[in-house]
Design a protein around this nucleic acid. Structure first.
Lengths: 110, 110
DNA sequence: TCAATGTATCGACAGCTGTCGATGGAGTCA
DNA sequence: TGACTCCATCGACAGCTGTCGATACATTGA
């Protein structure tokens, strides 16, 4: 659970001006979270779940990965601010953060 | 110079429905091209250049990487369809493809 | 033709990353 | 308390990736 890279504070649209190195690092780490097929499927599965929230245990079978692997990917998504993880009783509820996707969309704006 | 992944033919907005594995692979490879700070800087440098076009040789110094490394990254960007490379005489003109960024934006649409 | 220049490719290497089994912690329920 | 379940972490390993020096190719211009 590291800090969330603060894209909204750093990065103008990609094509509007030359990025400096620190901004490029922050942006790249955000896109890294989206650069894996398993994580993309997890994102869409969570979004498609009832109320946009899914339990981690219900995601292992659809993506066909082991429990540690799913846990790892969910942590990456959470660190990137793309989902939130809320512990409820003995399981964890994952919810997508649409605002975060919107921030990334703005960076790609022409 | 591999083929360009055809996002426009495959991928609905990420949050609209569960992605199947092949679509997730194509999408992930597209975001992989954006998941490196050097490549992001190259993209913005090219976009900021006069007429939106830059020679490869003018990019090495700003990003502070060797010629083979810059060549490698430019190939990755071109394979992802994010830039075009046109050989003119003894150098290569690189130009961003805004439509490609727009496609990726649509995938991130909420 | 020959030298100079811009690119691409090759080989190599370190570092990162995705993956899993094993293990341990935390919470629930009887 | 004790059994059970969900989850995170650890250790390990293979594969990918970014990087560079060396080299080869292609184009230009003398």
């Amino acid at each position: 659970m590291k800090r969330i890279a603060t894209i909204e504070e750093c990065c103008p649209p990609l094509l509007s001006a030359a990025l400096d190195e620190p901004d490029a690092e922050v942006l790249a780490s955000a896109f890294k979270a989206l650069a894996d097929p398993v994580r993309l499927r997890l994102l869409s599965l969570i979004a498609a779940a009832p109320e946009g929230t899914a339990c981690s245990c219900d995601l292992e079978e659809p993506v066909g990965k082991s429990q540690p692997t799913v846990s790892h990917h969910l942590s990456v998504l959470a660190d990137a601010g793309l989902i939130t993880k809320v512990k409820v009783g003995r399981w964890v509820n994952c919810t997508v953060v649409p605002a975060r996707l919107e921030q990334l969309r703005n960076v790609l704006r022409a």
